[in-house]
């Protein structure tokens, strides 16, 4: 197992290098460069200034030169300066990371607490009213546009009822824990919805697959209580695919949620990313996308490891 993990870690290096080349090319292939941001603002500029601007940013160089410069610096831990904010990319990402992790983690835990029992119960009571309700809820959750759901929640809980704030992370000047929690509720609920919808469906399907197998029937025939059969014998096996899907979703923890963060004015990485995209802020985009890629690759490994722990039949060598 140790050697397997080591090998996988070593394999990550060429993989990430390849990813960085592809991302670098794709970003720059998009039409318009950072100088079009000037034009996007609706004020007029001199082509001479635009050219000087490109030179200062090194954008007048051939693309492979730009990439080699970037990767050379990145390997030494220097991810460059953002074009628009003129600040170190790594610093900008680190500043945003706590808010993103906070929101994603709460949304994640909330989703897990709701989705897993929902899926299990739907499976146990297959075709009951509860199952139908759960199924409808899941499809609604998958189909409902996030921005719409977020705005509706704001209208109900902030505008009409006045119970929760519409947006932001804190009320300025209020350092209370309660204020922070109040700000977290709506975005976390919106964020958790798509996970609840997805995971509960996986949980239900996976549980249904297990519950009719021979060993579960054996457990039942031994006279074990239905509860014990479900939660001990069936659950462990049913959890394998669900856990690996959840582990993969964990990678998203670090890249944030673009729409949710924008709707709720949450100061996370998702919002930083979308702004960097509009601004064609190449170094910042590279930084965020490489962090995202690293996390996906890393959590893939984690998923594989968990798989092995949960299912002894799977071995690595």
């Amino acid at each position: 197992m140790g050697r397997y993990i080591l090998r996988r870690l070593v394999q990550m290096i060429p993989l990430l290098l390849g990813i960085s080349i592809i991302i670098f090319l794709v970003i720059q292939a998009a039409p318009g460069g950072p100088e079009t941001v000037f034009l996007g603002q609706g004020r007029f500029v001199d082509p001479e200034i635009m050219e000087k601007y490109r030179q200062r940013l090194g954008l007048d160089q051939p693309i492979y030169v730009q990439y080699l410069r970037w990767i050379g610096a990145a390997l030494r831990g220097d991810f460059g300066y953002s074009y628009t904010a003129a600040r170190p990319v790594s610093q900008m990402i680190l500043e945003r990371l706590p808010a993103t992790l906070e929101l994603m983690a709460v949304g994640f835990v909330l989703a897990a607490i709701i989705a897993l029992p929902l899926g299990i119960y739907s499976a146990i009571r297959q075709y009951s009213i509860f199952d139908y309700l759960g199924t409808s809820f899941s499809f609604l959750g998958i189909a409902m546009p996030v921005f719409w759901f977020g705005l509706i929640l704001q209208l109900i809980f902030a505008v009409r009822l006045g119970w929760l704030p519409t947006s932001g992370r804190i009320t300025v000047g209020n350092t209370g824990f309660g204020d922070q929690v109040a700000h977290l509720i709506l975005p976390a609920v919106v964020l958790s919805l798509r996970y609840i919808a997805g995971w509960s469906r996986y949980m239900r399907a996976s549980f249904l697959g297990v519950i009719n197998t021979d060993y579960v029937r054996t457990a039942r025939s031994k006279g074990l209580s239905e509860q014990r059969v479900a939660l001990v014998h069936a659950l462990k096996n049913a959890a394998i695919p669900v856990v690996s899907i959840m582990a993969l979703d964990l990678a998203g923890l670090f890249s944030g949620a673009v729409i949710t963060e924008t709707i709720f004015a949450w100061p996370g990485i998702g919002r930083l990313f979308i702004q960097a995209m509009f601004d064609r802020d190449y170094p910042l985009l590279m930084g965020i996308l490489m962090l995202g890629s690293l996390m996906v690759v890393f959590f893939n490994l984690i998923a594989d490891i968990i798989y092995g722990i949960l299912d002894p039949r799977i071995t690595y060598d």
Binding site: P165, T166, S167, I263, A265
Partner: peptide, 20 residues
């Protein structure tokens, strides 16, 4: 003065309606 950044225009209106 506190200048709060709210990128989404609909959220901005909701926040004003909520008296924030």
């Amino acid at each position: 003065i506190i200048v709060q950044f709210i990128p989404d225009p609909n959220t901005r209106v909701n926040a004003l309606k909520a008296g924030e």
